[in-house]
Amino acid sequence: MIKVEHLTKHYGHVKAVDDISFHVRDGEILGFLGPHGAGKSTTLRIMTSYLTPTSGNIYINDLNVLDDSLDIRKIIGYLPENNPLYPEMNVYDFLKFSAAARKIEGKAFENRLKEVSEMCGLHGVIHKQISELSKGYKQRTGLAQAIFHDPEILILDEPTTGLDPNQIVEIRNLIKQLGKEKTVVISSHILQEIQATADRMVIINKGKIAANGTIDELMSSFKGFTRLHLEIEGVMNARDLTDIHEKIKLADSQTLNGMTKVVIEYPNTLDLRKDVFQYAVKKGWTLLEMNRHRISLEDMFRILTVEEGGKA
């Protein structure tokens, strides 16, 4: 269990993180989402003891980052932003070095190396120099370093930045697989990234938490609109549909080849599909198609993280 409590970090006069609190439960994948400069990396750097908070604290199990920095670093695996590696080392030496810093040596190292290179798909590059690797393999090397000591907690700062789509899918699958037995915190500025991997997400903007919950919770708490696309046989007056409920707005209607296509909008708090169907039956319409579109999470993310005043 990771508890972030009233965490604040100033860089000079700039408040990078401003009094944020949230929890990460054991065994869950938490997505940490926000635009560039929102304070994601700063929070993760405090979590991993690279930085110290200006005020507030982070508790991990019964340890905290102010008093037990060294013990916390032992149970955390960390992939920093931009994945810094030593270009002049080869993958084997790099993993050997980071494992030795965590007291995994000799036979234990060789055994674990086999497991980890299997998991991260490092076969064939173990003895290559890091500077010669492709970006995808570099990322796998960084990930291998982070999971080598089988940490309880895995912290990944923008793990898929700069990868091509196939590599992104591979890394995502790997993260999901690791998330089955570990607590994972993954940050990104891309919503799909978090949607694809995380159980729950914390959205952060300008150093403050903008939203916190599962994707479904966030959707339902968000006061957006549902768009209902209807296709009805015959020509009819679409205006009639607004009689069903006072909140219904007619967004679009057109008649084509003896069919009427209608789009209506109503708040997300309502579900009027049943009413629409029954209304159509009452009127004797033949309903050929009914399709619900909720305002996408993407739109919501944009709305939550735009500047105050409503303009992006």
Binding site: R45, Y50, L70, R73, K74, P80, L85, P87, A101
Partner: peptide
């Protein structure tokens, strides 16, 4: 310069 300081100082190393 390379940012490896972040890697090094987040290992259990003083």
């Amino acid at each position: 310069h390379a940012g490896t300081m972040e890697f090094l100082t987040t290992l259990p190393v003083d």
